[in-house]
C-alpha cells in the first residue's frame, strides 16, 4: 500500500511538471514517454494495477491521460 501511494505520488510529481505545458495533449504523451523511459516494468505494472482496482482519481488529469497510453 505504501509502495502504491509512493507510485501515485511519483506519477503526480511528473504530472506537476507536464501540466504547465501549453499543449496538454502533447504533455500527456511526453509524460507517458517519461514513465516508459525511466520506470522499470514492475513500477509501471504496479501503477496500472493499482489504477485498475482503485481508479485514477488520485492522479492529476494530465497523468490520467498519460496512463491511458501505457495500458
Amino acid at each position: 500500500m505504501e509502495h502504491n501511494n509512493n507510485l501515485i505520488k511519483m506519477a503526480n510529481d511528473i504530472g506537476a511538471f507536464f501540466e504547465a505545458m501549453p499543449d496538454q495533449q502533447q504533455a500527456a504523451k511526453d509524460a507517458a514517454s517519461h514513465i516508459q523511459k525511466f520506470w522499470e516494468s514492475r513500477m509501471q505494472k504496479a501503477l496500472l494495477a493499482y489504477i485498475k482496482t482503485d481508479g485514477d482519481g488520485q492522479l492529476k488529469p494530465v497523468m490520467r491521460e498519460a496512463i491511458k497510453s501505457l495500458n
Binding site: 523511459k37 525511466f38 520506470w39 522499470e40 516494468s41 514492475r42 513500477m43
Partner: peptide, 8 residues
Amino acid sequence: DPGLRIPN
C-alpha cells in the same frame, strides 16, 4: 526496458 534506479 529500463531497470530499477537505486531508490526503486
